[in-house]
């Protein structure tokens, strides 16, 4: 920070709204792809666990290990293969969502009461219909809770991908650090947090819309 420079220069902020909008788009895109792809993979892994419970140990071990690898190290390791690209960023981001998503999808479906499942099968639902019409709707609250967690943590992690040339609001933080310019650094951090809070609120609303029966009790 330069002597005499204020912590936040509002005039700089006012003149950079276009850049904020651009970084917002980038941040949202990186997040949506990560959570979306992560969800598809996690869903497949969850079905595998539910059908073959002995796969649960290995899958949990692998996704758990991925979760503990420091993100910086992971990106550094990937660069020789995929370069400074979106692909590198997404591989990292997706792998961090898996542990949370798999755990919540499996827990949500296992939490469906046994009597409900028995009634469904006993009345003639085919196995696939039991999953889609009974188990998934009832697991929705727990699954969306997992998506919320994964989304919040991904929005935070996206800022780290600025180090490999991606990053959304993380780009502002990175440049702010490099130039000792606190205004840009703080703007990047605050916007990232605000995006996380907004995304979480939207997902809460979505869950309320999708589970009207939960409010009826």
């Amino acid at each position: 920070m330069t002597e005499g420079e204020p912590l936040i220069r509002w005039d700089w902020i006012a003149s950079h709204l276009d850049e904020f909008a651009f970084r917002l788009g980038e941040h949202v895109e990186l997040t949506v792809i990560a959570v979306g792809v992560g969800f598809v993979i996690a869903f497949a892994l969850s079905l595998l666990i539910l059908r073959a419970p002995r796969t649960e140990g290995p899958i949990t071990a692998v996704t758990g290990t991925m979760y503990t690898i420091p993100s910086l190290a992971l990106f550094a390791l990937l660069i020789p293969y995929t370069g400074l690209t979106v692909v590198t960023a997404e591989i990292g981001l997706v792998s961090y969502t898996l542990l949370i998503l798999v755990r919540n999808i499996v827990r949500g479906i296992r939490g469906v009461p046994a009597d409900v499942r028995e009634a469904a099968v006993g009345m003639g639902y085919a196995p696939r219909e039991v999953l889609w019409r009974i188990e998934l709707p009832l697991a929705l609250a727990v699954i969306i809770a997992g998506v919320r967690l994964a989304t919040i943590s991904t929005i935070g992690l996206v800022t780290v991908t600025s180090l490999i040339g991606q990053g959304g609001f993380g780009f502002l933080i990175l440049i702010g650090i490099q130039r000792f310019f606190t205004t840009e650094l703080i703007a990047g951090a605050v916007l990232s947090v605000a995006l996380a809070i907004l995304a979480d609120a939207l997902l809460v609303l979505l869950q309320r819309r999708l589970t009207p029966w939960a409010r009826a009790a």
């Binding site: 009461p113 009634a119 099968v121 009345m123 003639g124 085919a126 009832l138 589970t211 029966w213």
Partner: peptide, 29 residues
């Protein structure tokens, strides 16, 4: 599944579908 749709089934814990209305539950089969 075809067999089960022709046989009424009632269990002690009832097993109503919590996410469906009473009308939807009754209309299942």
């Amino acid at each position: 599944t075809a067999l089960r749709r022709r046989i009424g089934y009632v269990i002690q814990q009832v097993g109503l579908f919590p996410h469906q209305t009473i009308a939807e539950n009754v209309g299942t089969v």
